[in-house]
């Protein structure tokens, strides 16, 4: 019980825990979860968010270190743009491979994750290494490259606001725009949408692939700009894979991604507190967290099954 109390306190127990631990951890998961959710909605199985995050972080860091003298209102958007652009290019490689040669994106994006990881470890030992050339990391960014904090005394940064806006835009776009409708159609049935709906399937999936990559790259920029202020090798402990769970738990709904990203952020923050304050071994914490995620999944599944039973299968699917 001590352990569970520590879990709760670490995630929601104080304003610091919520704003500076839970939401800071939720920020990359929000952007990455959106990246995965959008792609999956269009039937693009992009599991390369991890690699797209890495190249986004590299590009944003390169910008931050190259133009350190630029004013902050210019440099921060530039970093975000560079991160998103790099992520889109990285995803674009897999998108081109799929469109031109029919390479399954599950394989290509996964492979590109390894390439991106190798690229990151080369960059922090080569072109972006700190000046003493001892440690595998970049120098710390100048203050002009630090993303602004949203609240005084808290570590919550601009990246979270960007993520929130992106989620709402994505939701509106999917639900109320023609392009969003095309994405949903392609995801539901590519052949039918092409023959009956007149949708250019290849073009739609290509576009979604790039947007998905851009969101993941933006997550990388937001991590280095908002949290670490430097580029490191171990930047992401598999955030890109956790994001798949975030997106699936949200049933690929951008609004739901907000909630599930906060849930995973809270679990992560609470798990740390359990180790710190209740002396629970880290492996046991991982087991408990996995158990909670499974329980939440089972509960949401059960609810939709009940709803389906009440209203009939067609309603529930829509």
């Amino acid at each position: 019980m001590d352990a569970l109390a520590a879990l709760w306190d670490g995630a929601f127990g104080s304003s610091y825990a919520f704003w500076s631990a839970t939401l800071v951890r939720a920020t990359p998961l929000l952007l990455l979860g959106l990246s995965v959710a959008l792609a999956f909605r269009a039937g693009v199985l992009n599991i390369g968010a991890e690699g797209q995050l890495a190249v986004g972080a590299i590009a944003a860091s390169a910008v931050a270190l190259t133009w350190a003298g630029a004013p902050r209102p210019l440099l921060v958007p530039l970093m975000a743009g560079a991160g998103a652009g790099a992520g889109a290019v990285w995803a674009g490689i897999a998108a081109v491979l799929r469109r031109r040669f029919g390479v399954l994106e599950v394989i290509s994006t996964l492979m590109l994750n390894f390439v991106a990881a190798a690229l990151l470890s080369w960059v922090v030992r080569g072109p972006l290494q700190e000046p003493t050339h001892i440690y595998p990391q970049s120098p710390t960014f100048a203050a002009t490259a630090h993303w602004p904090f949203l609240l005084p005394g808290q570590r919550l940064h601009l990246g979270f606001a960007v993520g929130l806006i992106a989620a709402l835009v994505a939701w509106h776009w999917l639900a109320h725009r023609a392009a969003g409708l095309r994405v949903r159609l392609v995801g539901a049935g590519p052949r039918a949408s092409a023959s009956a709906g007149g949708v250019d399937v290849a073009r739609t999936t290509f576009g979604v692939f790039l947007v998905s990559g851009a969101l993941a790259g933006l997550a990388g920029a937001s991590e280095v700009g908002g949290v670490t202020w430097a580029l490191y090798e171990g930047l992401s402990p598999g955030l890109g894979y956790t994001a798949i769970a975030v997106a699936l738990l949200a049933r690929l709904d951008p609004r739901g991604v907000i909630a599930s990203a906060v849930l995973f952020g809270a679990l992560d923050a609470g798990a740390a507190a359990m180790q710190r304050d209740a002396g629970v071994p880290s492996v046991a914490v991982q087991v408990l967290v996995a158990g909670i995620v499974l329980a939440v999944l089972a509960m949401t599944q059960l609810r939709t099954a009940r709803a389906a039973a009440r209203t009939g299968p067609d309603e529930a699917a829509a």
């Binding site: 610091y16 500076s20 631990a21 800071v24 951890r25 570590r155 991590e223 949290v227 670490t228 430097a230 490191y232 171990g234 930047l235 992401s236 402990p237 740390a272 507190a273 180790q275 710190r276 304050d277 002396g279 880290s282």
Partner: peptide
Amino acid sequence: ISHIQTKTPAEFEENFRQYGA
């Protein structure tokens, strides 16, 4: 005593802060 296993630079900083506080 208290121990925590941490993976990323972001976690290093956050946990240093928590112990300091």
